[in-house]
Design a protein around this nucleic acid. Sequence first.
DNA 1: GCCTTGTCTCTCAACTAGAG
DNA 2: CTCTAGTTGAGAGACAAGGC
Length: 283
Amino acid sequence: MVVPIPLAELHPFPNHPFKVRDDDAMKETMESVKEYGVLTPAIVRPREAGGYEIVAGHRRKHACELAGLTALPALVRNLDDDTATILMVDSNIQRENILPSERAQAYKMKLEAIKRRAGRRTKEAENNSPNYSANFRSDDEIGAAMGMSGDTVRNYISLTQLVPELQQMVDDKRIAVTPAYQIAALKPEEQALLVETIESEQATPSVSQAQRMKKLSQSGELNEDTMLSIMSAEKKPEVDKIVLTGDTLRKYFPRSYTPRKMEETIIKLLEAWQKKRQRSQER
DNA sequence: GCCTTGTCTCTCAACTAGAG
DNA sequence: CTCTAGTTGAGAGACAAGGC
């Protein structure tokens, strides 16, 4: 049954990973709430400390606040922690503008909830389940629900190992997700050193730089010097070739010349030029 | 209680595809 | 071509069940 719950009695879900932002989407939601009210009820559960915990509907609650409403229509359900966590993540993860750090934290929370709920797989469960797959894992389950592989989920979850400064850089797109997966394997003190190096060098690591750092970290050789030499090394040199398009060259050649003939002529002219320079240097 | 075995999970390198 | 996102597949460690 849907009941209106005063906003003051609603509390955010513990460790809710999704920030509620005052962006354009929120503005739209607020306008819609103002005009039509809240169409989809939130899902809440009673708190021991009194009031209710929002499982799904953090954004709707904020939209109500912005729209000047005093209550949010909600379904009150008695959910255990794990079920509530899974529902909370599922109801938020579909949105488009989710930061990598939010996604990582959400997947992690959901994975832990699923694992706790499923418990350890036993022979008995295997025999009783007709669709049993020996290789199916909890993170694959999350991936399947999201339309991605379990490995991608695992990679995302690894981002929770990043120190806050680096998480912020990933969210700001200063560091790409792929190198971030590698960086997440560094020890916290190495990550702190990396933050300093990024600021002093004004450069963020590429995939290959991140991979080299990870290797050094594993062999215990990552320190201020080795990190700086990786980060300050020239990025791969410019490609060792010059491209001259037909458009640029066409006006210097008769129309009948093919690209092949144009190339031959250019080389002949350059050879003549080189001989001329050599002669003038000999004088 | 200890040991073995099988399962589950994590991690990583190598790879592919697509964009620029 | 380089760079990034995502996938594949394998190795290794952790851990619970089951046998003794």
